[in-house]
Amino acid sequence: MINEQIRDKEVRLIDVDGEQLGIVPVKEAQRIADEKKLDLVKISPNAKPPVCKIMDYGKHRFDQQKREKEARKKQKVISIKELRLSPNTDTHDINVKIKKAKEFLQDGDKVKVSVRFRGRELGHTEVAFKIFDNFAEAVSEYGVVEKAPKMEGRSMAMFLAPKNS
């Protein structure tokens, strides 16, 4: 709440410099703020009496938005990239997928490697475990196995996380 929106009878007033002016009536606090051509801003509404500060509210809001924007810039969004294989994927094709997985891990993304089974392939799930072992060993320089290979319906999946995190 700012200026005329403050409905309390008395407030604890803090000056622009952070100096406490004591408990004063709201009208008096508003008059002091008007003399300095600044706003009266309610900082702590739950205190007894509420705490108000004299400040330039527009500048305060601008600085606050600037800080929030900086915080958003610094945060890293981790996304999950998926690579799909099949039990009879050839060696060269797996090497291409490994190269792609290394790129994703270097960028800081997690990688989901999945092997899709069709028809009779479902009876030979041990092939997928071999593929996953080779895959994890090949990318061990850049990432670690976050979630071991596990069956999910007709496919088996393994999650890799970047090593630096």
Rank of each mutant, 00 (worst) to 15 (best):
F135W: 05
G18E: 07
K42I: 12
M55Y: 03
N88I: 08
D133S: 07
L40A: 05
C52A: 11
K74F: 07
P149A: 06
Q106M: 12
S140T: 04
M158N: 00
R12F: 15
E141W: 04
R116T: 08
K81Q: 13
I78A: 14
K147C: 03
Q30F: 09
L122W: 01
P49R: 00
K74V: 07
M1R: 02
E10Y: 15
E10C: 08
K130E: 15
K163T: 03
M151G: 13
V145D: 00
Q64R: 10
A128R: 00
I80E: 12
K36F: 01
K102E: 04
M158R: 04
P49K: 01
E141K: 14
L105T: 04
E28N: 09
R31V: 07
H60A: 15
C52E: 02
A47Q: 15
L85S: 09
V127G: 00
D109N: 15
A161F: 00
L160G: 13
M156C: 14
P25K: 04
Y142I: 02
R7G: 02
T91A: 11
F129E: 14
V144L: 08
V96P: 01
N3F: 03
R120A: 14
F117A: 09
I80R: 15
N95Q: 15
V127W: 00
K36H: 01
M158D: 06
P25W: 02
K37H: 08
A101P: 05
I131M: 12
D17E: 11
F135N: 04
V127A: 12
A29Y: 02
K99D: 08
E126M: 12
K150Q: 14
H124E: 13
E4K: 13
E146G: 01
D63A: 01
G119Q: 06
F135R: 00
I23D: 09
F135M: 01
Q64I: 05
E82S: 11
V145P: 02
P25R: 05
K76N: 09
R31Y: 14
R120H: 11
K99S: 12
K76H: 14
D107A: 09
N88D: 02
F129G: 11
F104N: 08
F117L: 11
D107R: 09
I14L: 07
K147W: 06
I98E: 02
R31Q: 08
G18F: 13
N3C: 12
Q5F: 06
V111S: 04
H60Q: 15
V115N: 02
D8L: 00
I78Q: 13
K100A: 15
E4R: 12
I80C: 03
A101M: 07
P87A: 05
Q75H: 10
K74G: 10
K112L: 03
D34R: 01
D107K: 13
A157I: 05
Y142E: 14
V51Q: 00
K69Q: 15
G119N: 11
L40E: 03
L105F: 10
R61H: 03
K163H: 06
E152V: 14
E10I: 07
C52Q: 01
I94L: 02
P87V: 07
G153D: 04
K42E: 12
A157L: 02
I98Y: 08
K110P: 03
G123M: 14
L83N: 05
L40V: 12
G119I: 00
A136H: 08
M1Q: 07
H124G: 08
I80A: 06
I80T: 13
R120C: 03
I78K: 11
S165D: 04
S114F: 01
K102Q: 05
H124S: 14
V26F: 05
A101Q: 10
